[in-house]
Write a protein that binds this DNA or RNA. Structure first.
Lengths: 231, 231
DNA sequence: TTGCCGGAATTGGTCAGTCCACCTACATTA
DNA sequence: TAATGTAGGTGGACTGACCAATTCCGGCAA
């Protein structure tokens, strides 16, 4: 036989620019930390030598994957990879209506209450992070900083962390992100943050006093109250 | 004083066009069958009275959600919704050890117990599917069919369905699949299925008697017992 | 009639440029 | 000092156009 390989026609690789951009941005995001800004659309477009449109499409995909968050008038930021599950997928096919918010609330209650329960059961429970967090948010409230939808759930997230169940942390983070999405999409105003803060403090107090069951009950009631009273 | 309510300024909800498009397309996709063509970008843009750019961004999101497929020179097609959330991503980076199984068990307990609780709270609760399921599995046990790891969780899944919370169903399904994966990976034998069956029947009995709280407690204990006694 | 060919229409992908609403920070003014 | 005004940056949206590839369809040749 001949040792010479016949020339073989190969299909020309046709690259989609936006896919290429997506790949590069994914690597970029992977090399950055949570909260880092990955630049404005215009910057990225110039650096990648592509149009803003292509950058935007890649960013939309990245956003749907839950890797980045696009904030108006601010830029694009790396988002907490803890929620390895995609909120977008979790809600796939569902419209944000009153019923959906109810379901979401029920799911959140299951997870947040479990976080409290597990925390209360821990022998080596360290409540210091929770105290510190409440101290911070309390100060922010006094300083009348502007609203921050994610603030309401930071306490619950911190609870899951001190509870020490990474799986719970991930699912909870996903649900919390979906919660934030849904509320902004529904155009709902955040609830009374001072009231939320008081309830958080009550839960922490119950934990400090070793009253786990009461803490769980308070958490359930707390989540119940966050659901919108009227559309 | 005055019975007249003061006019209250409310923040103006600013809608993102592409989000609006996304919502409408989601509903459209939901009303179509797998493989159906949902039209070209230009058609959709004209029908929605928006620019192609907005349609494209919505389609990109929809694509990332795994709901549609965009085919060059052909159009946009509805795709198989493929299993909602990925168990693989949920466990990403974690080894299956005793601790992991414990975490998983805790997470499962949170969801399965919530399913019971929600079911118990439903006014129009229809327990027939559960009775039927237990009848089937009971017959299988009598016939000494071979082991089926998923069988242990069919009852809990059915509970979530009668509870009527689609979000809970999805998350629960993911956790259950991960559970099955982890157990097979760890080479653990399934527990005593006859015992599981008895416990399921006890839970159903509690529901039938309207004792929701007892049913929830039984479910928590049930899940606890499924965790391996020794590594 | 059958089968092939080639242009026309269609489609997703991409681009440059423009405008808008909004937020922030800094400078200005009372 | 505390309001007010202003300029620049940001994401969001649109327009109009062009490209490459595919598909469609009419007409020509066998």
């Amino acid at each position: 036989m001949s040792g010479r390989e016949p020339f073989r026609i190969r299909p020309i690789r046709q690259v989609d620019v936006y896919r290429e951009v997506l790949g590069q941005l994914e690597r970029l995001v992977g090399s950055l930390r949570v909260g880092d800004r990955i630049g404005s659309e215009r910057e990225l477009a110039e650096q990648l030598q592509v149009s803003r449109v292509s950058v935007r499409e890649a960013l939309r995909t990245l956003e749907a994957m839950g890797r980045v968050e696009i904030r108006r008038n601010a830029g694009c930021f790396v988002v907490d990879p803890e929620g390895t599950l995609s909120p977008t997928r979790l809600r796939a096919g569902m419209a944000v209506d009153a019923e959906f918010l109810q379901w979401l609330s029920e799911l959140r209650a299951a997870l947040d209450a479990k976080a409290v329960e597990l925390a209360a059961r821990r022998g080596d429970l360290d409540l210091e992070p929770l105290r510190e967090l409440l101290g911070q948010t309390g100060a922010e409230l006094a300083g009348s900083r502007r609203a921050d939808t994610t603030m309401d759930m930071r306490f619950e997230a911190a609870l899951a962390r001190v509870a020490g169940n990474p799986l719970l942390i991930r699912v909870q983070a996903t649900v919390h992100r979906l919660w934030a999405e849904a509320w902004s999409e529904a155009g709902l105003a955040a609830g009374d943050r001072r009231e939320f803060h008081r309830e958080h403090e009550a839960i922490l107090a119950a934990l400090e006093q070793g009253e786990g069951e009461r803490a769980v009950r308070l958490m359930n009631e707390h989540v119940d109250r966050t659901v919108p009273t009227e559309t």
